[in-house]
Design a protein around this nucleic acid. Structure first.
Lengths: 218, 218
DNA sequence: ACAATATCAGTATTATAATATCGATATAGA
DNA sequence: TCTATATCGATATTATAATACTGATATTGT
């Protein structure tokens, strides 16, 4: 919805990257030194040309005929591209169960995300400690983000509060928003909103079921 | 990745539906009776033709020139399409923090998802009760799914276990999988895998930040 | 009653992503 | 050493989604 930013790698390709990374890690553990595009395509059920192009986009080593690509180098350049090494600091707003799950998920550290503060309006939650992260009152958002030069804001508040929270994050100088609320957020052009709409996924699932039940295939 | 199923509504359109629904609900609360495609497009920052086509795809009432569409009817037909009324029963495998968040999220009931059982391999978790849902041993998956005619399986286990769990769900006669593990899952053709890859979203965010930092726009 | 216009539905066009094709080349095996 | 071939990169084609355009129509205001 906000795609006026020039980027070398397409969004679709970026979405495939974590799957490549996961697969390459498996290969690395198996001490496999090289891998070809067709092989990865087969493993991930993708088109081989697409895989080759995605690899070319991250521009690691060029592949060699008959051999393919160097697993370790390819993996490194992908992790580099996705910033898995240099952590991006983030704040999370709305300290409900979803937020707690996100904070508890230590795996996100590996993906280059470091949550440094949580905010909530619920006075009961304020002051508490979730996985070592202090829950602060929501009116401190802008101030803290600006002071700590935070670039990512994660929104896990209910739909009705999302836009207000978003505005506060923007006021705090945030550059990207990860939005778990099922609403459209209005933001200035240069800010990216990445929507994680679980309802959208459910819509796809439900729609599939409806068709699958009408035309049973087994 | 698994798109050989004929469907009247495109996946992209389905992804937009929850946003339409949310917006229509707001309008309904404001006692607004009709709304035009351009108006919705403006509110959600979409193209008006796209909105009109999405509306046509759910085929509710036809719109009237100068007036637009009936909010209530449109909303009803969208909710009907997405199965918000008739709940789909689901099981969740992996009773970690993410699963707990999903189960705690009573909002999913409104989206037509009813989680009836949870599974885990961790003996400590087995037998416990999360939000009224019993945690059962993982080896019961296939059996219970088949017996209860469950159609949706939610996977929140670590990457390495995901494929095994997926196979068990498939063996249990599941039709759709909601996969939170950052791995590609191999399934028979007629089964839909809806990937909820949080790492992919982080990839997009991180990539945006990298570009935004190089070319600051404020 | 009639003119002006917002909006519609349908069709045409454009943009974007996915896939197919093709000549080149490095490796493996005869 | 030479031949066969897997794989490459590059380019062409196709498929899909987004957007622009056009004539029709219902409402609103004069």
């Amino acid at each position: 919805m906000n795609e006026n930013i020039k980027q070398a790698v397409t969004t679709q390709a970026l979405h495939r990257m974590p799957y490549y990374i996961q697969q390459l890690r498996v290969l690395q553990e198996q001490k496999t030194e090289t891998v070809s595009a067709p092989k990865i395509a087969e493993l991930l059920n993708l088109n081989e040309v697409q895989v080759r192009k995605d690899f070319a986009a991250v521009y690691s080593t060029k592949g060699k005929p008959k051999m393919g690509f160097l697993v370790t180098e390819l993996l490194a350049s992908m992790e580099e591209l996705l910033g898995y090494n240099n952590a991006n600091e983030a704040v999370i707003v709305g300290a409900g169960s979803l937020a707690q799950a996100i904070m508890a998920h230590e795996g996100f550290q590996d993906y280059g995300l470091k949550i440094v503060a949580a905010f909530d309006v619920n006075t009961e939650r304020i002051g508490s400690d979730i996985n070592g992260i202090k829950v602060l009152p929501a009116d401190k958002i802008s101030n803290l983000c600006r002071r700590m030069k935070i670039h990512i804001g994660i929104i896990t508040v209910p739909a009705v509060q999302a836009q207000v929270v978003c505005d506060q994050l923007v006021a705090g100088g945030i550059l990207a928003v990860w939005n778990f609320a099922p609403v459209h957020l209005s933001v200035p052009d240069h800010i990216l909103v990445q929507n994680e709409n679980l309802a959208a996924s459910l819509a796809v699932l439900s729609n599939h079921l409806k068709h699958a039940m009408i035309t049973p295939e087994f």
